[in-house]
Amino acid sequence: MKPPSFEYFAPTTLDEAVALLAQHGDEAKVLAGGQSLVPMLNLRLARPAALVDLNRVTGLDYVRAENGHVVIGALARQRAVERSADVAARQPLIAAAIRLIGHPAVRNRGTVVGSLAHADPAAELPAVAVALGAEMVVTGPNGERVVAADDFFVSYLTVDLAPGEVLKEARFPALPPRTGWSIVEVARRFGDFALAGAVATLTLDDQGAASDVRVALFGVADRPVRVPEAEQVLRGERPDDDRIAAAAEAARAALVDPPSDVHASAAYRRHVAGVLVGRALREARERAQASG
């Protein structure tokens, strides 16, 4: 099980990387952490003619707080983000999501931005990005542009990146005050991709009603999805158990065509999505109340 041949480039600046990617177009792949790409190469399921390795580009491994956001550069390893004090203080949901990804050796090498650009619909971080309304900073031959997470994830392993473009950083809004959060999933084994998962944040106003609710699901469509149908049930309401149950039911009903595979059918994913939305909202509520 050996990878096919490819041309290998290790640029030291982002401009150089963009130029190489533009030059090779569809034939090139970006190599960052490699924890998804290299297995596909070894299995010969991917055969790029060229690999543009970002690992020698300096100054891309940052994780920092900036203007009410947590900003994560293309080469920040998942493990570093998981341990970041800025992340813990401002957006703990990211660290919690990372702890559900694979295993330490995978997170040591894998990057947060790489996971977003790979866009596995069952992955945790894209769903967090969608739930939080993160911004994707894309750089390419024509300069930089910023894409909303909701628009960035197009379909299975497909994102809004043109040939020559690189996802340079992701900006996650910090958690507002009086906000609780949760990420829960069902996976076959610890660390596996989720059969289904839910992300929720819940902001309470002075009366204890939900002033803001965000719910996103992963593993249940060809991309991570926000679930406005569930959010609506709670917005402006007190998030008691009955309301949350109704939101969960709304999430279940909103799912169009969940995937089926050897591990679970569409029916299972639909059922469990509702269960997980309920659990995520209840946990987010407890955290919001505790942050009082």
Binding site: V186, R188, L195, H263, A264, S265, Y268, H271, V272
Partner: peptide, 8 residues
């Protein structure tokens, strides 16, 4: 095997 789905 008793996968989560088979159990449900």
């Amino acid at each position: 095997p008793l996968s989560p789905e088979r159990i449900l």
